[in-house]
C-alpha cells in the first residue's frame, strides 16, 4: 500500500518529571503509519525545529522529519490545514491528545472539519485499504472493537489501543534530517483568556449519608447489600431459568 500518509507529531512531556520527550500517542501514530506506509511515511510537526525531543521520532527509523516553524502560543491548525490541502495526502494520523499546552484534543477535529474530511477516532488498527476505501478497527472502552468503513482521504486519531511504538534508537535519531519550512504565523487567542496553573490534586469524593436521625445513620452504616427488587426464580426448571437469564443478557446487549 503506498497511500500518501502523514503522521502529525508534537512534543510530549514526561508525566512525572515534565521533561520533553516524544509524545506517547503521537509515537503510536508514527508506528501505525510506518506499518502502513513504510518508508514513504511523511512525519510533520508544527513548532520549534530545534527541540531535541523531536529527534526521538527520527530514532524510530525515519530518514527525515518536516517542521513548519512557528513559536509557542501560535495556532497550528491553519498552517497544517493549508499544508495538507496542498500536499495531496490521503491519510493523516495523529495522536488523540497533546501532552503539553491545553491538550484539549481538538486539533484533529478542527482539521477534519476545515478540510471537510471524515474523522475516525481511537483507531486500533487499519486493516486494509482497497480502491480508496479503508477498513478500520476502532477501539471502544472495555477492550471492545468496532469495524468501520471509510473512504479516503480521512483523518484518524490513535490512543493507547493502537500498536505500541517501537523504541527510538540513538544512531538514526542523530543521523535523521529535520527539514524546516517557514510559514506565516497565526496567534492563538487562548493565551489571552486562560491561565495555566499547577494541577491541584482533586479531593476524593466523600460518601455523604443524608440521614435525618441517628437510626437512619446507623442503618446506612450497618446495612448489608440491600435486598432490592431482585427477581428470584424458585422451583423452576433449569431450562426456564436459563431462558430468563438469557433474556436479561440479550436485553443488556452483552450476548451477541
Amino acid at each position: 500500500m503506498s497511500i500518501a500518509t502523514v503522521a502529525l507529531v508534537s512534543i510530549g512531556a514526561h508525566p512525572a518529571s515534565g521533561r520533553a520527550r516524544r509524545a506517547e500517542h503521537d509515537a503510536r501514530a508514527v508506528e501505525l503509519g510506518l506499518q502502513l506506509a513504510g518508508d514513504s511515511l511523511h512525519v510533520l510537526h508544527a513548532g520549534n525545529p530545534h527541540e531535541p525531543a523531536l529527534r526521538a521520532y527520527l530514532g524510530m527509523g525515519l530518514s527525515e522529519l518536516h517542521v513548519l516553524e512557528q513559536s509557542d502560543g501560535n495556532d497550528a491548525v491553519p498552517i497544517l490545514r493549508d499544508y495538507l490541502r496542498e500536499s495531496g495526502v490521503q491519510l493523516v494520523l495523529a495522536g488523540s491528545q497533546a501532552e503539553t499546552g491545553e491538550g484539549s484534543g481538538m486539533l484533529p477535529y478542527l482539521l477534519a472539519e476545515q478540510l471537510g474530511w471524515p474523522l475516525v477516532v481511537g483507531v486500533a488498527q487499519i486493516e486494509s485499504i482497497h480502491n480508496g476505501v479503508a477498513l478500520v478497527l476502532q477501539a471502544l472502552p472495555r477492550g471492545q472493537r468496532r469495524r468501520l468503513k471509510v473512504r479516503l482521504p480521512f483523518l484518524a486519531t490513535v490512543d493507547n489501543a493502537a500498536p505500541k511504538a517501537r523504541q527510538s534508537a540513538y544512531g538514526p535519531a542523530t543521523r535523521g534530517e529535520i527539514d524546516v519550512e517557514a510559514v506565516e504565523v497565526v496567534i492563538d487567542d487562548l493565551s489571552t483568556q486562560g491561565a495555566f496553573q499547577a494541577a491541584k490534586p482533586r479531593p476524593k469524593r466523600l460518601k455523604v449519608i443524608k440521614a435525618k436521625s441517628g437510626a437512619d445513620r446507623m442503618k446506612a452504616a450497618t446495612a448489608k447489600a440491600a435486598g432490592g427488587s431482585g427477581q428470584v426464580l424458585k422451583g423452576v426448571s433449569a431450562e426456564e431459568g436459563a431462558q430468563a437469564i438469557l433474556k436479561l443478557l440479550i436485553e443488556e446487549g452483552v450476548v451477541r
Binding site: 447489600a225 426464580l233 426448571s237 433449569a238 431459568g241 436479561l248
Partner: peptide, 26 residues
Amino acid sequence: IKRADLSVIGDGEAVLQALIAAVDNW
C-alpha cells in the same frame, strides 16, 4: 441472592447446560 437482580435457584450444572443450549438456539 440478596444482591442479585435476577436469581435462579437450582443446580448450577443443569442451568449452565440449559444456558448453552438456549444461546445456541437463539
